[in-house]
Amino acid sequence: MSILITHGIVDYTSGVRHWVSFRDNIYDATKIYSPKFNLSYSTPPHYCRMFLDCSQKRIGIVMASQDKCATLRSGMLKCYDTNKKLIVKASIEDHEVNDELYFTFKSSKFDDIVRVELHDSSALVVNKTKTPAAVKKSCTSTLSTDLAKLLCIGDYADVEIHCKDGEVMKCHKNLLAARSPVFKTMLDSDFKEKDSGTIKLDYMEIGIVKELLSFIYSGIVEHPQKAMELLGAADQFQIQDLKDICGELLASTMAVDNVLEILAAADRYRLTELKTSAMALVVLNAKTLVNTPKFKEFCTECVDKQLVVDIVKAQAYK
């Protein structure tokens, strides 16, 4: 079993993992990641990503989980140009993927690569040796659970967040201030929130506020399907790690039917890697996308108008 990966389009096929990366003079990228895929087809899954590192002229594989490492026991890495001609082939035998595994090629060949295939006949994924860092991670997990309970129960809460439709969440000033520079400014300065003990977010749905607070307290995104709405909240309250996670979640679900929305969000919220991957998929499907109502909406919402120009140029070259 293997996976077809085309910037967010994941399809189970037989024999090979494909990852397509469209690269030309229209849109330049320094480092492009594929969506996550299960390296060993195991349950629970052990995710990794493939990537093109354009500045260093190399292709790599990186484990998505920091507590896992892998050995690719056998396999093959194949790269093709725009004419579907095989230009690079590298054997894989007992290669370890600890943090990142690199395959470096001559620059003349690397610049022609538009398609990467990972043929892996066997892979072994194991836990890393337990180190003080791993112990620290375990303790952090316990702390995360305890803080999530504190939010749920509301003990010793000293501030209220008032949401849309009159919903109220009881919170703790010190945690809000520690996790968000925006909340810290509200609670530290001469803003009325400091004295009243009330923060009004009456324009936000209670569901998004709950997701935001859950992450502030526990570091966990409870409902990944709300990543798009949560991204806006993360940007507003300047919670960078939540923005990054939302970007990864959107990348993992990216397909032709939602890529314009994701590209607009990546542009609006300055998520460079997501913007690069989304743009690559849009360019690859420009001829289809430019004639849709979604493209007209995208042209209106997009902050970076050069993206629109690039897409139209790509459509003209098809």
Rank of each mutant, 00 (worst) to 15 (best):
H119D: 13
Q66M: 13
E117V: 09
T104D: 08
P293D: 11
H7W: 03
I5M: 07
K210E: 10
L86F: 01
H95A: 05
D24G: 06
T140N: 14
E160N: 08
L101Q: 13
A316D: 03
S214H: 10
S21I: 15
E248L: 12
S144P: 03
H46R: 15
K243L: 10
E229V: 01
D158P: 09
S196V: 14
L284H: 07
T30D: 15
V303Y: 01
C139W: 08
D310K: 02
D112G: 02
L212Y: 03
V168A: 05
D120Q: 02
L242V: 13
S65P: 03
V159M: 02
Y156E: 15
T13V: 13
T185W: 00
F295E: 03
T71N: 08
A265C: 08
L52K: 01
M279K: 01
A178H: 05
T300E: 11
M1I: 14
S108L: 15
Y203I: 13
D165Q: 06
Y41N: 11
V114M: 07
D53R: 07
T43K: 09
S40R: 08
D53G: 10
V182P: 06
V290M: 07
E96P: 00
K164N: 12
D235K: 00
D112L: 14
S218I: 10
L307K: 03
E211G: 11
F298H: 08
C79K: 05
L242H: 12
V303Q: 04
I5S: 04
S218L: 04
K318V: 07
D53Q: 09
L39I: 14
L213Y: 09
T145W: 00
K184V: 01
F295A: 03
M279P: 05
V135W: 01
T272S: 13
H162P: 05
L289H: 02
L118W: 11
D188N: 06
G197L: 11
L249I: 15
E211N: 11
H162N: 12
K200R: 14
K305F: 01
S189V: 00
L201S: 11
K170S: 14
D235T: 05
C302Y: 06
M169P: 00
L72R: 06
A234M: 09
V10F: 00
L271K: 05
T142P: 01
S138A: 13
P181Q: 10
H7A: 09
E248P: 00
K164S: 15
D81H: 04
D310S: 03
A280F: 00
R73A: 04
L101T: 11
G8M: 05
K200E: 13
V88E: 11
Y269D: 02
M279H: 03
